[in-house]
Write a protein that binds this DNA or RNA. Structure first.
Lengths: 250, 250
DNA sequence: CAGCCGACATGATCTGGATCAAGGATTGCT
DNA sequence: AGCAATCCTTGATCCAGATCATGTCGGCTG
């Protein structure tokens, strides 16, 4: 798709490419498939409908708002944001998606993508035709279950975002949640690289960029985090969790 | 479940009770089943797993936060709110659900209900065991599709709620959206009865009850709506739509 | 290497909506 | 009937976070 500058430092894809019988280890569907102990033909069916796409450079669109909905995308490497832009140009960032997570599920009901999906860094994806994967889900109850779970999980995340909370609680929750999601994919639990700008974080948390900046500064001042540009280390994870509790606990 | 005072005026259930081959006309699944033109045995399977429950009186719990997830509920008559209460007692209303809509889908991923579901007025439901209905969905692709659509739709609603918008835009969007959902179920398009208190509306829209009251008052003053307690008539639907545009348009 | 641009930080001010306060209307309870 | 409780409204004040304004840094380009 998008041309990819020749000598950009790619982030190392943490997923292997999979072969006929093994999926990228990070893929959101691998657990479902493996857990259910599917036999080789079923696995082959799933594998056959995967399409590896990428690389996308930072800023490239994976899909665009109002495009007809045809496929969902699992992030294999890199990171994406999903964004809606309203009539007078204000941006809302619906979410950030890291390796192992799936993008596009909010397009099922409207039958077109309700948002843009934009790569934040050089990224690779697995593309699953939605008609194909849902047809397959009919024959693989574990896959169907996994799809239900993924959409329902997304619903939980959107609900959290809708909550009413102080700015510092939301920023703390953002850091804690992102760190936990990275940790779930095998990344270090207390250090993270923010793939997104302060602007994106702000547009995600319904805050002004200045507020995000100030709060991160305050967290640093008070020793809760180390902060160097987009590199963050959670120094007092307990305290951050406590701040985030009302946002994340359900 | 809850005892139901003998002589309360029930709202007329708008759904027939269904017989062996016909579902309550309002049921969220009837369209799916009918659309796909299922044969009698398949329809019987679906019908067999429905359990009609109720009545629930206003204030009764349909399910509670942290209960294990076993079933989803289609509203047959009445109305429900779903609510989370955080550690220090602040309530967030996730949504309101009217006849024809389904409650409980946000429990799939966590495997327990993440919220309370509380009847707002005397209400009846169809209860679907989730393991049973998803097993059936395996044999009825149209039903599977309908479940995907329902969860994805819910996701869209949660996303709107997460948006950043002025208080009057959110109140306008609330009225317009609710009116449209009632209209989709065959109710009059420009008149509605609010089953919920101002407090519930406020907790839903992240506003103070005072703000909701003031904004409704302002809408009335400026002729956008007629307002008498919980009875609302949308007088200038166009103007209200315009106000709500940034919230609802996607 | 100067010049530029975008991302980030930080100080000063402003404001939408929260909070505090009070009163009226309904409804249920004894 | 009388009373408590809840719901709703309206007014007065306050404040968290937005907005406005400036400055810094680092990276890229000509």
């Amino acid at each position: 798709m998008s041309p990819f500058p020749q000598d950009l430092p790619y982030p190392a894809p943490i997923a292997d490419d999979g072969d006929a019988l093994h999926f990228c280890s990070t893929c959101a569907f691998s657990q479902a498939s493996m857990r259910a102990g599917y036999d080789k033909p079923a696995l082959r069916d799933l594998h056959v409908l995967v399409e590896h796409v990428g690389p996308y450079a930072a800023g490239d669109h994976v899909f665009r708002a109002r495009d007809p909905f045809r496929a969902i995308f699992a992030v294999r490497a890199g990171a994406v944001k999903t964004v809606v832009v309203d009539a007078d140009g204000r941006e809302q960032v619906l979410g950030f998606h890291i390796p192992g997570e799936v993008v596009g599920l909010n397009a099922i009901y409207p039958e077109h993508y309700p948002c843009d999906a934009i790569a934040l860094e050089p990224s690779f994806f697995c593309r699953f035709s939605f008609p194909a994967i849902s047809a397959l889900a009919t024959r693989m109850p574990g896959l169907q279950q996994q799809l239900f779970r993924l959409i329902s999980k997304e619903l939980g995340m959107a609900t959290r975002l809708a909550g009413d909370h102080a700015a510092d609680e939301r920023v703390a929750a953002f850091l804690v949640d992102l760190a936990e999601r990275y940790a779930a994919q095998g990344f270090p639990a207390r250090r993270l690289h923010l793939a997104m700008s302060r602007n994106d974080i702000a547009a995600h948390l319904r805050l002004a960029p200045e507020t995000v900046s100030r709060i991160l500064g305050r967290f640093r001042e008070s020793g809760l985090i180390d902060l160097d540009g987009r590199e963050v280390a959670l120094r007092e994870a307990d305290h951050l969790h406590a701040l985030a509790r009302n946002v994340l606990d359900r």
